Simulated scan of single mutants.
Amino acid sequence: MRVHQLSFAALAIAAGLSLTACQSDDDGKARSDPSAASSASTGGGAGTGGADQGGGASAGQGTGGKSSGGQGATGANGSGGSGSASELGKCRTADLQITAKDRTITGDDGTVVVSLRNRSGHSCAISGYAGVDLKTSAGSLSAKRTGAKSPSVVLKNGESIDFGISYPRNDSGGSGIRVTGLLVTPPNETHTATLHWPGAPSLPITENGGTPVKVGPIGSAGQGG
């Protein structure tokens, strides 16, 4: 009997120790699991937050102004704006609306002002002298340049610039040389616009055979160019 009682006591003690060990293991696991989960959450949050912050900083720098895209936009705006005359293409005949009006004020000479309006949709550069020829009953008559200096002009879309044509009026009482049309070739161009002549209907006949018609540079519109 004593032997059996000791065996039962030993079994009870062993069972108690085993139960205590299991509880300790369970408690350890219970304590370790929240800790591990919190660490993973923190690590994941930090990793996600770091990636977000890094992406935000990168986007901020890209949008911020010192990026190549920002400089490119500025460059595009610069070239799409007025620019300088040397950076722009020449004003072409097809891009210009060309009109002529009589602007005679006083004196022996008459004045016709030719207006060049940019309708190209972009800025263009223009300078120098336009080619001017009068169609007359005696043939074509080319205007002579006044010799005045012409500035380089940036003509924005929708803007106009003028130049003047001066010619002697026919006060002789005779028929003179009848003017039937006006031919205008913009500077640095080969295409000519044909216009109605708005000035006096005739020119006097000159004895010396010189050219009585004069043209001023682009930007001039007064009598005599």
Rank of each mutant, 00 (worst) to 15 (best):
V153P: 01
G43S: 12
A193K: 08
T63W: 00
S41I: 10
A85G: 12
D25S: 10
G158K: 06
G78S: 13
G209R: 04
A143T: 14
S202F: 01
A125H: 07
K90L: 04
A30T: 15
A46M: 10
P198S: 11
S39D: 10
A57Y: 00
S39M: 13
A138Q: 13
T106Q: 07
D109T: 13
S123W: 00
T104Y: 02
L11N: 09
T42R: 08
L19V: 15
A37Q: 07
A57Q: 07
Q61D: 08
N157F: 07
S140E: 14
D25Y: 03
T20M: 14
Q97T: 11
S38H: 12
Q5V: 11
S220F: 03
A14Q: 05
A37D: 10
A143N: 10
G47M: 06
E87T: 11
A148I: 10
N118I: 02
G64V: 03
R119Q: 15
K90R: 07
L6R: 12
G89M: 05
I161W: 02
R2N: 13
G83A: 08
G107E: 03
K149L: 10
D33I: 15
G50I: 03
S86Y: 06
T180Q: 04
S86F: 14
I126C: 02
Q23T: 14
L19K: 06
G72A: 09
A40S: 10
V112K: 03
D171I: 13
